[in-house]
Design a protein around this nucleic acid. Sequence first.
DNA 1: AAAATATTTAATCATTTGATTAAATATTTT
DNA 2: AAAATATTTAATCAAATGATTAAATATTTT
Lengths: 203, 203
Amino acid sequence: MAKAKKAELDLSTEEKIKEAASIVFTKKGYGNARTRDIAEEAGINLALLNYYFRSKEKLFQIVMAERIDKLFGVLTPVLNDESTTLEEKLEKITESYINMLLENPDLPIFVLSEIRNNPDQLSNRFQARKHLTESVFVKQLMARRSDLNPFHFLMNLLGMNLFPFVAKPVLQPIVGNEEMYRQLMEQRKKLVPAWMKLILDQG
Amino acid sequence: MAKAKKAELDLSTEEKIKEAASIVFTKKGYGNARTRDIAEEAGINLALLNYYFRSKEKLFQIVMAERIDKLFGVLTPVLNDESTTLEEKLEKITESYINMLLENPDLPIFVLSEIRNNPDQLSNRFQARKHLTESVFVKQLMARRSDLNPFHFLMNLLGMNLFPFVAKPVLQPIVGNEEMYRQLMEQRKKLVPAWMKLILDQG
DNA sequence: AAAATATTTAATCATTTGATTAAATATTTT
DNA sequence: AAAATATTTAATCAAATGATTAAATATTTT
């Protein structure tokens, strides 16, 4: 195979494997996922998987980095947008999260449980604090409510948005079927920002 | 060994093993926990573990049932208390949860991720819906706010209380050290009920 | 067509790990 | 002390699973 086509195919197969790995890892977690599962999901065989990625661990690291980006990528651009108000940020974050999580409901529980298993995974945790405390969002928040710890506010926002998905395996059977759960999440796109504004103004 | 002493010791050793299993399973999850870890944690050997409990799976089922009880046991008695107001229930649930979770921070992520791995685990999910919708809590809630879906309200309450612990591996390094995190949680004992009352009255 | 590369097939390794066994030792009960 | 029971020790099994290998086949490039 020549360079051009090679790169093209490599990317395609590599992408297929990464995609499959992402699905299997996210659904089962690292420990319960078998490389044979991933190969099958990708429609290739085990030998090829090890030919592209040297090991399960390496493949996992790549997938994990992507998944973490996906989970927190929703947050960071909005937090630092100078052109939006605090209220608009609440609306944007909520809508982005709920939309993304409706497509990736297993994502939060996967990332959080894997980080629990291996806390070092989050190597940039030092800068995370700095990035957050120096964000436009936190500045706006402190300007408005100097008495309210931004961490509390953020925990509430994330809790309201992420928790229903983290707890979906428990809550969905109680609520009803899949579709009813989706409808509840759709409603929360409007409700969560409204509740958060209450906290912002009077909490 | 005679009956009396036998039962006594059995209980003690069985309890030691269950306690150890609870610790190891909760910290690592089923897939990543090794029976050898559990035996070591219990201060006994692998043979004895399999002598008392026939298999890892059986031991896990027992531990899991206990952990689920611990996680939801906080909720159920308060939800059906006829003698307390809605506001008092919010206060009780929040304080009970935060106190319990400060002692068992890994509990929510463990239970939720294991149920994700094996959704059938929650065999009583049918009655859960009934118990919940017929609870004093939901009746009080609907009497006060017929326009507010109780599931939304419950998701908010649980999200605010449980999510900070579910996300602790991510949030704690950002917030600061262990002690600072604990202080935040202590503050939330007063704050969460206040926020929930806002939602109750004006959301 | 020839060469280069990608992919499959099938077999095999090595390690981990849950589980079992039998014999030895300790502890408790009678 | 004798009997019954609990626990340890050490060895071993069997299955699952991550990983490797070599040869065969398919595909693409030149």
